[in-house]
């Protein structure tokens, strides 16, 4: 199988912050990380429509979970910390620079 110049199979990442640890709960945060030189994920004033509403939507689209939310921390039912539960997903795909 031949590849296009400047392309190779690389790890695309997706940080999804869901309402609960369930893959079926709604996504509150969406951060794609593309394995392209100089790529930076950023906060934007105009938020584009996210392609997925839940982590499960992303699984259906071929993403794989590489890290589930950490739930080992002591449960404090009074204090609030970060927003949502972080899932990290990957896709191994051929990616071309520029």
């Amino acid at each position: 199988m031949s590849s296009a110049p400047n392309s190779s199979v690389r790890q695309r990442l997706l940080y999804l912050h869901a309402r609960t640890p369930s893959v079926f709960s709604e996504i509150l945060g969406y951060t794609p990380v593309e394995p392209i030189k100089d790529y930076r994920a950023e906060i934007t004033a105009d938020v584009p429509d996210w392609p997925y509403h839940t982590v499960h939507d992303a699984l259906v689209d071929g993403w794989q979970i590489v890290q589930f939310p950490h739930l080992q921390a002591p449960i404090d039912d009074r204090d609030l910390d970060v927003v949502g539960y972080e899932f990290i997903l990957q896709k191994l795909e051929e990616v071309q620079d520029g």
Binding site: E26, G29, T31, A41, E42, V83
Partner: peptide
């Protein structure tokens, strides 16, 4: 701990 967030609902 917020470093992996960009756009938030």
């Amino acid at each position: 701990r917020m470093a992996t967030y960009t756009n938030i609902h």
